[in-house]
């Protein structure tokens, strides 16, 4: 059985923005960058749990809204000198549909 689930359309996420997926395991942030690539991370900053979905997105990075840690969208890790990692989720595009797989690690 496939674990890929459609969560929204690409156009429902603003470019350089994010949407929050309410998941039983906890909120998941799905990001879209300027090149229409999508990324999914647990919506909790490794610093003090800030909601990453609310941060400013640039390049392949999001700046956490609470204290400005810079989290890599591809890897979930904080940019040096900060240390920490947010969990990644597998996400891909199928045409305009954004598919999320919470069973597979990204």
């Amino acid at each position: 059985m496939s674990h890929w689930k459609k969560v929204c359309l690409l156009t429902e996420i603003p470019p350089l923005g994010a949407r929050v997926i309410q998941h039983p395991q906890g909120d998941i942030a799905v990001f879209r960058n300027a090149d229409d690539e999508v990324f999914a991370l647990e919506d909790r900053c490794p610093h003090k749990g800030g909601p990453l979905s609310q941060g400013i997105v640039y390049g392949k990075t999001v700046a956490c809204p609470l204290h400005g840690w810079q989290i890599g969208l591809e890897c979930g890790t904080a940019a040096a000198p900060d240390e920490g990692c947010a969990r990644r989720y597998a996400v891909r595009l199928d045409g305009n549909a954004v598919l999320l797989n919470t069973e597979a690690a990204a």
């Binding site: 603003p14 470019p15 800030g50 909601p51 609310q54 941060g55 400013i56 997105v57 809204p65 609470l66």
Partner: peptide, 19 residues
């Protein structure tokens, strides 16, 4: 450009430590 605004100015409310 809302995406270039800090969350408070994008959501027009002040974010708290618990989100």
């Amino acid at each position: 450009d809302p995406q270039s605004r800090f969350i408070n100015e994008r959501a027009h409310a002040n974010i708290q430590k618990d989100g």
